[in-house]
Amino acid sequence: MTTLTTQPLPFGAEEATFIRRSLLHSLRDGESMVMAIMLPVITMLMFTFVFGGAIDSSGDYVNYVVPGIVLLCAGFGASSTAVSVAQDMQNGIVDRFRTMPIRASAVLTGHVVASLVRNLLATALVIGVGIAVGFRPQGSLLGWLGALALVALYILAITYLFAAIGLAAGSAEAAASYGFILLFLPYVSSAFVPIQTMPDWMHWIASNQPLTPIIETIRGLLMGTELGNEPLWALGWCVAILAVSIVFGAVMFQRKAGRR
């Protein structure tokens, strides 16, 4: 029999194990993988070839729309974290982790990091497809790095938000249904059409919802155009969503997976 020498876990060991687990889960979930690839590609093709001509006949629409599609895909992809978390809660594996001498909450870190990796890859794919259909960004290297950092921060915020929603949801099915918000929220922003083209009453909503400054910042950074104070709003929204979600998640974890 193997000698069972157990060592106290070094700092971060639980996280490392759970990150590996969640990445394996991502790799093996065929349907989600297909969805993660097809959604950006189809959305991109729809907007550039089907709607693009009607929206802007100059053919320059692709340069306008890519940042919006990046955000739509990253946000929707991150929302699947709710399903992973709800599944873990539902099938009892979190309870098993809680009877072990480890920090069970590290299982959430695994899902968050996997989501970050998954959605950054999806973002690269969107940009790649965008370039293939004519996206010609003019931004500087610094602009690119800034845009990527903001996308990563946005993914992180949405992931944490949906991890908390996954904890709060009664089932994986219920958790899955919340993701639709991020599929539609981008339409009422400057993602696909300029806000000025919307009816007056919608202006206020579209201008003041979190996605608009984030999209405007990414667009400005990638295209090298004027940014104004949009980056401040973008950062503020991301940090605010992240902070609220972390607190919400901690409360939900305590309630659902604390000692009852």
Binding site: T6, Q7, P8, L9, E14, R20, R21, P101, I102
Partner: peptide, 9 residues
């Protein structure tokens, strides 16, 4: 995975 979580090499 569980072995790692229990601190086995």
């Amino acid at each position: 995975m569980m072995g790692r979580l229990f601190g086995l090499s």
